[in-house]
Structure formats: C-alpha cells, structure tokens
C-alpha cells in the first residue's frame, strides 16, 4: 500500500486508541480500502439526485415539550465506574483534552 491516504496516527489519537505497529499497519490497509470504495462512488453520476443527510424517508419527527419522570438517582449512577455522593466521578481532566 504505497499511497495510504490517511494519517493513522492522527485518527488513533482522535479516537483515543493506542495501536500497536502491527495494528496501525493493518488498519491503514483497511481504511485505504474504504477510500477505494469512496472513489468508486465518486465516479458515479449523481447530478440528478439531491443531497441528503439521511436515508430514512422521514422529516420533522418531533415531540411535544412535556416533562416526564426521570431515573431515580441511584439507578442513574448504578453503572457508573465511579461515583462520589450524588455525582459521577471521572479521573481528572487534563488541559488540552477537551
């Protein structure tokens, strides 16, 4: 794969995934295949088709503004890896991670 069109280090950083060299090489290859699929799609003539962000033939699905019961707090916190009092607790957030 001479011309890999993707920076796998950047992608893995964005996804917060630490990849081994072997994984990085393997995923680079797989991503490249995706770009090939996209290249095939880009070759198609789609002038007659309007752009869409959604394949479901629906629009304006909305709900009325009515408040409903929420989860009891202990249930809401039940699956949290860590909690402190009424709060979810996470490792400290480092600057620059936002």
């Amino acid at each position: 794969m001479a011309d890999v069109p993707i920076d796998i280090d950047h992608v893995s950083q964005l996804a917060r995934l630490a990849l081994t060299e072997e994984e990085a090489a393997r995923f680079s290859g797989q991503f490249s295949r995706l770009f090939e699929f996209i290249a095939e799609l880009q070759a198609l003539d789609v002038d007659a088709i309007s752009a869409t962000a959604q394949v479901i033939p629906l629009k304006n699905v909305m709900r009325e503004d009515v408040a409903q019961a929420c989860l009891p707090r202990d249930i809401a916190l039940e699956n949290a890896p860590a909690r402190e009092g009424p709060y979810f607790k996470t490792p400290r957030i480092l600057d620059g991670e936002s």
């Binding site: 709900r63 503004d65 009515v66 408040a67 409903q68 019961a69 929420c70 989860l71 707090r73 809401a76 916190l77 009092g85 009424p86 709060y87 979810f88």
Partner: peptide
C-alpha cells in the same frame, strides 16, 4: 422549555445533582 432538547427530563435550574437524567441524556 419544560423538558430537555431530546428527551423528557425536566429542564430546571438548581435541582439536586443527577436527578434530571434518563437513559437518553445519559
């Protein structure tokens, strides 16, 4: 609004922590 943007949890300032949450907004 009465409720949140994408779920029916109450939109209210100053409530006890984590009492206006549901599976959607969590």
């Amino acid at each position: 609004t009465q409720s949140k943007m994408f779920c029916g949890c109450r939109n209210e300032f100053g409530a006890e922590p984590n009492t206006h949450v549901c599976p959607i907004c969590l």
